[in-house]
């Protein structure tokens, strides 16, 4: 914006998507109230919260699964109202859900291009461009730092982390500028979670905006630029990376003083 303060590398001024005081209620139940967040290019926004904190409601608004009730939602600085995930995809916002939308018995490259297959020829001779799909899939996976033995193997034989990587690489290839990851590390072991965190870092380094939804501060802290804490549908705070330690993050997530009380309660009491 101003010449005196150049933007940080990767972040290009206007947020890719921005929520300003958005909220959503179902009947008389308020699921989300007055939440603000910005997703910048080349940055990772971590959305943290316990079960029922409002994470899913926020994701469904960001991903276009349901429109926001109150507040303002902006894409590239323009107020927008997303009515479907397809519309969100057209804006370059892709969501990778926990089921990953893969077909386990189909090969890696067929899954990569599922629904958007490349073809050659016309009429009855129109056929899959297998060679090109294989080479593109291989190159795109390599750009994400994924080396697979064999693109022909069914995707169901890959590990959870690898499948997650394929799903992210696929979203990026098909034009995503913002990738929303819904609890990508929840069901994974330490090593597999590491693979996913590396993917997130790579996507960020390629200039994408990443929304990383998790309830694990130890997964969020190493990759996050900004941490948005949610609790009972409300914003508990937004912190930049330098402003908070992983211990404070953990404490805030668990409800601050509640955790202190619990620690005292569960501790050994003499007598």
């Amino acid at each position: 914006m101003s010449g005196a303060t150049p933007p940080r590398p990767g972040s290009a001024g206007t947020p890719l998507i921005e929520a300003r005081g958005v909220g959503r209620s179902y009947g008389s139940i308020v699921a989300l109230h007055d939440v603000s967040a910005r997703v910048l290019a080349g940055e990772v926004l971590c959305v943290l919260g316990d079960n029922g904190a409002g994470k899913s409601t926020l994701i469904s608004i960001l991903s276009g699964a349901q429109p926001h009730g109150s507040g303002e939602f902006l894409v590239d600085g323009q107020p927008t109202r997303l009515s479907s995930p397809r519309e969100a995809r057209d804006h370059g916002i892709a969501t990778v859900y926990q089921d990953l939308a893969v077909v386990p018995l189909m090969s890696v490259w067929r899954n990569f291009f599922l629904g958007s297959e490349l073809t050659v020829g016309h009429g009855p001779l129109r056929r899959l461009d297998v060679a090109r799909m294989r080479s593109v899939a291989s190159a795109e996976l390599a750009r994400m730092g994924i080396q697979l033995r064999d693109l022909e193997q069914p995707i169901g034989t890959l590990s959870g982390g690898e499948r997650q990587s394929v799903a992210i690489a696929r979203a990026v290839y098909f034009g995503a500028r913002v990738v929303i990851l819904d609890e990508p590390t929840a069901a994974l072991g330490v090593k597999q979670a590491g693979i996913v965190l590396r993917d997130i870092a790579r996507a960020r380094d390629r200039g994408l905006g990443v929304v990383f939804v998790t309830h694990n501060p130890h997964h969020a802290y190493p990759v996050g630029d900004t941490f948005l804490l949610l609790g009972r549908g409300e914003m508990l705070g937004t912190y930049a990376r330098g402003e908070i330690t992983v211990e404070e993050l953990t404490r805030l997530m668990a409800g601050g003083s509640e955790l202190d009380d619990l620690t005292r309660e569960l501790g050994r009491h003499p007598s």
């Binding site: 077909v103 189909m106 599922l114 297959e117 129109r126």
Partner: peptide
């Protein structure tokens, strides 16, 4: 070797994933 063939495998293998894609 065709798109409909890919869709047949996907429709039978994981219909909801196929629809999402």
């Amino acid at each position: 070797r065709t798109r409909p063939g890919n869709w047949i495998f996907a429709a039978g293998g994981a219909p909801s994933s196929a629809r999402q894609m």
